[in-house]
Design a protein around this nucleic acid. Structure first.
Lengths: 114, 114
DNA sequence: CCGACGTTTCGACTATCGTCGAAATGTACG
DNA sequence: CGTACATTTCGACGATAGTCGAAACGTCGG
């Protein structure tokens, strides 16, 4: 179960255009992820700026770097994303929600943790 | 369908401890919401600071102020929250996700829009 | 009307974010 | 080894967020 400060950190990591694009690109690329070089070219952003944001996403636990031969791969952490969605749904309808809630909480599951 | 900048704005609105607490308190209070005065006492935060954050949440479309007699009520906008969850789930598994996705996108629905 | 109360605006301050080029670091290939 | 290339760190800068007290504003009850 995700706690508040972790949720805030994860939300903050995604609450920035460049970082959201980076994360979406990584998710879109599949479990293998992408290298900073490819991301830099793909999103047209200087390597240093990209590295800054990659570090932010990694600190929030939303991506993880993995050495792959001579290159480096950043892989999306779907499990963390799932946990975030779980936190959000759990706290969206919590208390007096007997009336308006269409589905029970935790029906949400984005991807398996792999 | 929510676009990127709206998603970023919504995420940013929730990516702050005080604002997340405010929003959770409003959701927990049900569709009627709460007044700034009650929230201020409940969360132990100065009225001016609270007003600042309430404005932020309102600008992101996550809460809406409604006059109720002599008082003011801030009501949670569950529809916007639902849209945000939809955006997040849609962009979590998008491309090469044929393998890992447990459920189909848009299964997520937090609350009816009321 | 007027006084009281609830709420917002204003002004000031500190802290952190986002950007980027230049330089440092590390990794593998020859 | 040493060279080439991929990636990160560093330093600097402007911009924006977050906090809060004091003051202004609006809305009602008497």
């Amino acid at each position: 179960m995700m706690d508040e400060s972790t949720a805030v950190a994860s939300l903050a990591a995604l609450a920035q255009p460049m970082r959201l694009r980076v994360f979406r690109a990584l998710v879109g690329a599949g479990p293998a992820g992408l290298t900073p070089g490819v991301l830099s070219a793909l999103l047209d952003v200087p390597p240093s700026t990209l590295s800054f944001h990659l570090k932010g996403l990694a600190r929030a636990g939303l991506v993880a770097p993995v050495r792959e031969g001579r290159h480096l791969h950043y892989r999306p952490a779907l499990g963390q994303m799932d946990a975030l969605l779980g936190y959000l749904t759990d706290h969206c309808c919590e208390a007096g929600a007997a009336d308006g809630c269409a589905i029970q909480p935790r029906e949400v599951a984005c991807c398996d943790t792999h």
